[in-house]
C-alpha cells in the first residue's frame, strides 16, 4: 500500500529534522544556481557597458509583447505553485493536483512562446555564428549580445524543462497519496526551485528586452 510508506528516512530522528535538512539543502542548491547564472550576468554586464548602443540595437529585435506576456505567464505560474504548496499544507489533494497542473501548463506555455521567439531569430539570421547577418555595422559585438541572449534564455529554458519534469513527478506522487499535511516536503522544494526560475526571468526580461526603448 502506497499510503503506508513511511516518509521518514532511516538516518533522521524526526520528520521535522528531515524537513529542515531538505529545506537547507534546497537553499544551498539555489545558491549554486545564483552563482551559475551569475557568471552569465557578469559577462552580460561587461559587454553591455562596453557596447551600449549595439546592445540597445540588438534588444530592439526582441519582441517586447512576447517577453512581457511570458513574464506574466511565469508570475501566474509562481502564484499557482504557491497555491499548490498551500493546498498540500492543508491536505487538499484534488486542489494540489489542479494547481500543479496549471503550473505545468503555464510553464509549457512559456516554453512554447520561447520556441516562437527562437524560430523568429533563426529566420532573421540573428543566431550567432556563420549564418549571422547584421546590416547595422560591425557584426562582431551584436553577436555577443545574441550569444548572451541565447545562453541566458537557453539555460533558463533548460531549467523550465527540468521544472516541468519535476511537476509531473509531483503530480504522480500526489495522485498516489504520498503527501499529507505532515509530509509534503517535495512539493515545497520544487516550489522553491520554480520560484527561483521565475526570479531569473524577472531579471532577464528588463535586461534583454527593454534596453534603450525610450
Amino acid at each position: 500500500m502506497a499510503e503506508s510508506r513511511n516518509p521518514l528516512a532511516h538516518h533522521f530522528d524526526s520528520l521535522e529534522q528531515q524537513y529542515a535538512a531538505a529545506k537547507l539543502g534546497m537553499w544551498s542548491f539555489l545558491i549554486t544556481e545564483v552563482m551559475m547564472f551569475g557568471g552569465l550576468f557578469l559577462g552580460y554586464i561587461l559587454y553591455r557597458c562596453r557596447f551600449p548602443e549595439v546592445f540597445a540595437q540588438g534588444s530592439h529585435h526582441l519582441d517586447i509583447k512576447l517577453g512581457a506576456f511570458n513574464t506574466a505567464v511565469l508570475i501566474v505560474s509562481s502564484l499557482t505553485m504557491a497555491l499548490a504548496v498551500h493546498a498540500a499544507q492543508e491536505g487538499r489533494k484534488q486542489a494540489t493536483l489542479t494547481y500543479l497542473f496549471f503550473t505545468l501548463m503555464l510553464g509549457l506555455t512559456f516554453l512554447g512562446v520561447k520556441v516562437i521567439e527562437y524560430s523568429d531569430k533563426y529566420q532573421h539570421h540573428l543566431i550567432p555564428g556563420a549564418r549571422f547577418l547584421w546590416s547595422e555595422g560591425d557584426a562582431g559585438p551584436p553577436q555577443l549580445f545574441y550569444s548572451y541572449y541565447f545562453c541566458m534564455t537557453g539555460l533558463h529554458a533548460i531549467h523550465m524543462v527540468v521544472g516541468a519534469g519535476l511537476l509531473l513527478w509531483l503530480m504522480a506522487l500526489t495522485a498516489r497519496n504520498r503527501f499529507s499535511p505532515a509530509y509534503y516536503t517535495p512539493i515545497e522544494m520544487v516550489g522553491l526551485y520554480w520560484h527561483f526560475v521565475d526570479i531569473v526571468w524577472i531579471f532577464l526580461f528588463p535586461l534583454l528586452y527593454l534596453i534603450g526603448r525610450h
Binding site: 539555489l30 545564483v34 552563482m35 557597458c49
Partner: peptide, 20 residues
C-alpha cells in the same frame, strides 16, 4: 535560511564588483 538566501546574492556582488 535568511543567511543562506542572502549569501548567494552577496557572493554574486563579490563576483561582479571585483571582476568589473
Amino acid at each position: 535560511i535568511w543567511v543562506f538566501a542572502s549569501a548567494g546574492f552577496i557572493w554574486l556582488i563579490i563576483l561582479f564588483a571585483f571582476t568589473l
